[in-house]
């Protein structure tokens, strides 16, 4: 499976994302610069964390206007897996690929530590290697991870099982502790925690591996080679 790691000016988790896919998963990965206009050869799209365009105006707002985002939308419409982590999640909401928005943390602080997450929906192409309700530990590193949406959107997210991960504790103010959501179609996931930083026990944990393995498993099952 071939992944594109989209690189914006100010992305800083692109290397970790690449490492997770290439070295830990053994799949193919390539960096794709934000002004590229073709993602057709990739099977999965990864939007890494960081501070694209210095988070000017609003986090993710300027990145959303990049040439590559038109291609990301096309890939999403085609049903390819699109994963946005941290700043990637913020970009996906600004681009309208996911509902809601990420606000400043309620305590106004940048927070960087490992948190407990609950897998709320283990039946997605991103979570099939976890069990429903499983508790996993994944690092967070954000100043703007306070997920906000209106009541109507929240009810819709709940009814469609679009809430994929929640925090065990409320530390950033997110509505109903939401840590990650999926689009209605089920192929675009945005989450604030960093699974790409939890892919090896040597560096503090491997609970994030399941997410990447889920994507690959789903892809293999739907792309059986007829030799």
């Amino acid at each position: 499976m071939k992944f594109a790691v989209i690189v914006f000016p100010g992305s800083n988790c692109d290397l970790d994302m690449y490492h997770a896919v290439k070295d830990e998963l053994g799949e193919e990965a390539e960096y794709v610069w934000h002004d590229s206009t073709d993602l057709s050869k990739y099977d999965g799209i990864l939007l890494p964390g960081g501070f694209s365009y210095g988070d000017y105006l609003r986090c993710g707002a300027i990145a959303q206007t990049s040439a590559i985002m038109g291609e990301v939308k096309k890939a999403a419409e085609a049903g390819k897996p699109v994963l946005g982590i941290c700043n990637g999640f913020q970009i996906l909401t600004e681009a309208g690929l996911l509902p809601g928005v990420l606000l400043r943390n309620k305590n106004l602080k940048f927070m960087c530590h490992t948190v407990g997450l609950k897998v709320e929906n283990a039946h997605t192409m991103f979570t099939n290697q976890y069990t429903q309700g499983q508790e996993i530990r994944i690092p967070i590193a954000h100043g703007e991870g306070n997920y906000y949406c209106d009541d109507e959107t929240y009810e819709k997210l709940k009814a469609n099982n679009q809430i994929v991960f929640t925090y065990e504790d409320d530390f950033n103010g997110s509505r109903n502790n939401i840590a990650g959501i999926i689009n209605e179609q089920g192929n675009v996931l945005g989450m604030m925690p960093h699974p790409e930083r939890a892919v090896s026990d040597l560096i503090g944990g491997s609970d994030g591996l399941g997410l990447f393995r889920s994507i690959v498993k789903q892809w293999r099952e739907s792309h059986v080679t007829h030799a």
Partner: peptide, 9 residues
């Protein structure tokens, strides 16, 4: 609508 503001918030 397209860039300067986010009308969700």
């Amino acid at each position: 609508h397209r860039l300067l503001t986010n009308t969700v918030i």
